[in-house]
Design a protein around this nucleic acid. Structure first.
Lengths: 245, 245
DNA sequence: CGCAATGTTGAGAGGCCTCAATCAATGTGG
DNA sequence: CCACATTGATTGAGGCCTCTCAACATTGCG
């Protein structure tokens, strides 16, 4: 659901059984038969520790002891992994409703860095107590983990098969779809990350991101003003991502 | 643990708290305090359905109903995802001990294709019954899911920051490490996949893979004979991946 | 044995990277 | 309140790595 923008058309009436299984949206009707409420809705009453963060502040770092999971209540975050020789890769941009720290559920310490991109608030979920309070908490964790895997695979597919312009489009469409799910406008995006961070995530140099945005603007598909991006022609973007360069 | 080769040196005594948290090996001592037996060991007695596959045969395809999980008992497999417009990406090469299908645990249908690279045998694990039989089955699933996420992140980092030669080295070292864990030689690799499949996984063209292998051979680091690869200088490979080009 | 699939190597082109300069926005201190 | 430094974004020029297209060798199989 989160990456609906990545897997374009609906399941094709194609040769092999089914394709494009990455689009969780295809299965939404099935899953929604039991109207599952938000995790945030469920834990609203609980006396959770709430933590506020300033821009650029670390929520946690790889290697630090893992005390709990963190449900994002407000703000935007990035998660990243690093290698010993200094290389670094942003693994995702996270927003309200996302759960941070699940990737290290089986470890005593965190496996990635989590950094606030602006002011943010997270709710601390103690895993042990949660399982007692919410009977299906483990199920939810499993679903979130599996969903993260599919999301990662979707981006691996995108980064491995799309050109620079197409990757930027894929990001814009995905970001717009996620904002829309949160009730914001899907037309007017306010990027919370720098060009360098966007390039890191998309496996591009920051100059290439800038140039791609300029090209898309020149084609009349978007309007760029620093970190504010208006989507002028969503259909055109989708076509440009699937069709030609 | 599976990708020890990806995250090179041990945690650095560096500026920020800790780095290189991707190396599960760092945590092995902690986790091994409770000597966890293989999943295969645990289910050996159970009356599981065993399925044999021929080379190039699909175990399952994206979109097909998910009946169970599949524990690889013999052979090598690849998993891949596809987009509606025909792009495809191999998400991993799987071998004995790996569990196939967990990425769709929260869905009624599979989220990827699983294809045997040679003759193979899988054991069918019915999720529902497993949870009754093995009290910590859910825990194991969680660990496997989280491990897959970290593994994916490790490769996203590699593909996003390494050159063609370095990516090939990363693959060879990872493959060797996994074979060694299974009791095979870490010096003599028999690749089960074509150059095209390897290139797809590493986000390279097949010719680039061939050229990279040739260059590594010319530098005396490996010996290539079609799909048989002898690692002549493991330390040199590691240095070439971290250090220079 | 001949065909198909796979792997290797070469030549050329192109997309992205690297290096560099410029500009805008922000905030800091005198 | 403004000079100044800092950060981030944009654009240009040139080079290199990888891709593309092609030919050829090798292996395996019907």
């Amino acid at each position: 659901m989160q990456d609906a923008a990545l897997a374009l058309p609906p399941p094709s009436p194609a040769p092999s059984p089914v394709r494009a299984a990455l689009a969780d949206a295809d299965f939404a009707p099935v899953l929604d038969s039991a109207p599952a409420p938000d995790l945030e809705e469920l834990v609203r009453q609980l006396p959770l520790l709430r933590r506020r963060l300033k821009p650029r502040q670390y929520l946690f770092r790889a290697g630090q002891p893992r005390h709990a999971l963190y449900l994002i209540h407000a703000g935007f975050f990035k998660t990243s992994v690093g290698s010993a020789d200094g290389r670094e890769k942003i693994t995702g941009f996270r927003m309200r409703g996302d759960l941070l720290g699940i990737d290290a559920l089986d470890m005593p310490t965190h496996a990635c860095d989590a950094i606030a991109l602006d002011v943010g608030e997270v709710w601390e979920l103690p895993v042990g107590r949660m399982q007692a309070l919410l009977p299906d908490f483990q199920q939810r964790l499993t679903a979130l983990l599996a969903g993260e895997i599919r999301r990662d695979w979707g981006w691996m597919l995108a980064l491995g098969t799309l050109s620079a312009d197409q990757r930027v489009i894929a990001f814009l469409l995905d970001f717009a779809a996620r904002l829309e799910r949160m009730g914001f406008s899907a037309r007017c995006l306010l990027l919370r990350m720098t060009r360098a961070e966007l390039g890191n995530f998309l496996a591009l140099q920051l100059e290439t991101v800038t140039r791609a945005l300029s090209r898309l603007q020149a084609r009349g598909l978007i309007e760029v003003a620093r970190r504010e991006i208006r989507i002028a022609d969503a259909a055109g973007l989708r076509a440009a991502m699937a069709g030609d360069q």
